[in-house]
């Protein structure tokens, strides 16, 4: 149950793709910016490749609700092949948006989301990641796209905080920081809203 000032996000990914990490990272960064946050995966004994779901609540007030999210404001799909097996728009609020990792356009994706009339956003996370990080780590671009589309965090501050976080995380290999920052910025620029 979301109150008016609360943003609820649902992540769909596959085990091993980093959807859970992106979700937890978003909670961490939003928390750093003074928001009240929740980031939690829905757990099962699934292994690499199995569909997984994760959730974020981001709010100005502490949220005590600890149920899953059934009516998200935003849905992030880290792997477009999930569209075939998972009801990704289930419960998604009319005024919300779905953000999909795909090289296709929002218009093309809308055709595959039968019945969904709200916003469809796309981002080619694989390409951006490969170009900037040298490998396919879709979670970083998807995080950036989610922040951009949802507007849940102020972009400039988000980038600054992420840079701090990368500096801490990759203290021993600073060259990685640059690639990650470029990935974030590029993703924010490239995400298409349709």
């Amino acid at each position: 149950m979301a109150t008016n000032d609360m943003v609820e996000i649902r992540w769909h990914g596959r085990g091993g793709q980093g959807a859970k990490s992106a979700c937890l990272l978003l909670a961490d960064v939003a928390g750093l910016e003074g928001k009240f946050v929740q980031g939690f995966p829905e757990y099962g004994p699934e292994r690499m490749g199995a569909p997984i779901t994760a959730y974020n609540r981001i709010s100005e007030k502490r949220c005590t609700v600890h149920s899953n999210i059934y009516y998200p404001d935003y849905v992030v799909v880290v792997d477009e092949t999930l569209l075939e097996s998972v009801d990704v728009t289930g419960g998604l609020k009319e005024g919300g948006a779905i953000i999909i990792n795909t090289p296709s356009s929002p218009r093309e994706m809308r055709e595959r989301l039968a019945g969904w009339t709200g916003k469809v956003c796309t981002i080619d996370a694989r390409r951006i990641s490969e170009e900037n990080l040298g490998a396919n780590f879709p979670n970083t671009p998807m995080l950036a796209a989610a922040v951009k589309v949802s507007g849940v965090l102020e972009t400039g501050r988000f980038l600054a905080d992420m840079e701090e976080s990368f500096k801490h995380k990759f203290a021993s290999k600073p060259q990685v920081i640059e690639g990650n920052m470029a990935t974030l910025k590029k993703s924010m620029d490239e995400v298409q809203v349709g």
Binding site: A27, G31, F36, Q38, G39, P41, H66
Partner: peptide
């Protein structure tokens, strides 16, 4: 504490 709900959820 509650498994996953609390143990695996990031909160402030």
């Amino acid at each position: 504490m509650d498994g996953f709900i609390t143990s695996h959820a990031v909160e402030n």
